[in-house]
Amino acid sequence: MMKRVRWAVTLFVIASLVIGIKWYVGQQEEKLKYASLFLSKEYESYPATDFSLLDINGQEVTLSELKGKPVVLNFWASWCPPCREETPTFVKLYEKYKEDVIFLGVNLTNTEQSVENVRKFIKDFSVSYQILLDEQGEVAKTYQITGIPETFFINRDGMVIYKYSGAIGQEELEILIKKML
């Protein structure tokens, strides 16, 4: 009986160590990813292409009219798992930086089953930043979107200073926002 208890405790300790080591290695990999992102050569900026789209409430939004404030421009769809993964981060950082940075979510509406799916997504994730509807996919084509999510960081002068492909983490998003301020 005592051998079984010792054996069970030993297995528990070993399993705990393995889990702890895996967690630690994962944390270090994330730090290296952040470091490589910002220690790599400077991203070559270029003028953001202007566009006008209707938001989810039918209001027209024109990118060039937002000049003077940095813009986080995120292309997404409600059916996209990585988009669903990153949305809480956008919601959180929008609340933190909404006085200084404009957040625009460009929904690839032409890939959605219905606009109601977009409305449900907005409600489910408590999205309070502006959601634009790219109903024909023209803005996505203009910005050469090859996969979603993709996020563009546009400084107050209307220059794209960085493009991030894939789901972005909170630390990365915040570093890029601060870079625009």
Rank of each mutant, 00 (worst) to 15 (best):
E138Q: 13
E116C: 14
T111R: 14
L63Q: 06
P149T: 12
F90V: 07
I154R: 03
L73K: 03
E112R: 03
F152K: 04
E116S: 10
V139Y: 05
Q59V: 12
S45Y: 11
R119H: 14
G137D: 04
V139R: 02
E116I: 09
V72E: 11
V91K: 12
G137L: 06
L104W: 05
Y43T: 12
S45P: 01
Q113E: 08
G147Y: 10
K67A: 04
K123M: 10
E116K: 15
Q144I: 13
E85P: 09
Y97N: 09
L54N: 13
L93H: 05
V127R: 09
F125P: 08
N117G: 06
P81C: 07
I131F: 04
G68M: 06
P88L: 03
E95W: 15
K141Q: 12
Q130D: 12
Q130C: 15
Y97E: 10
T87N: 13
G68L: 09
F121S: 00
S40D: 15
F152G: 04
T87L: 11
E86I: 13
T89V: 15
K98E: 10
F75C: 03
F153N: 02
K120P: 12
F51D: 01
D55S: 11
Q59D: 14
D50A: 09
E86S: 06
E65L: 05
I145L: 12
Q144F: 06
L54Y: 10
S114V: 02
E85N: 09
V91A: 13
E44Y: 13
F90E: 02
T109K: 04
P70K: 08
E112T: 11
K141A: 15
A48V: 02
V115A: 11
T111F: 12
L133H: 05
I102K: 00
I102V: 09
E138G: 08
F90P: 06
Q130Y: 15
S40L: 05
E150V: 08
K92H: 10
K141H: 11
T49V: 08
V127D: 04
S64Q: 14
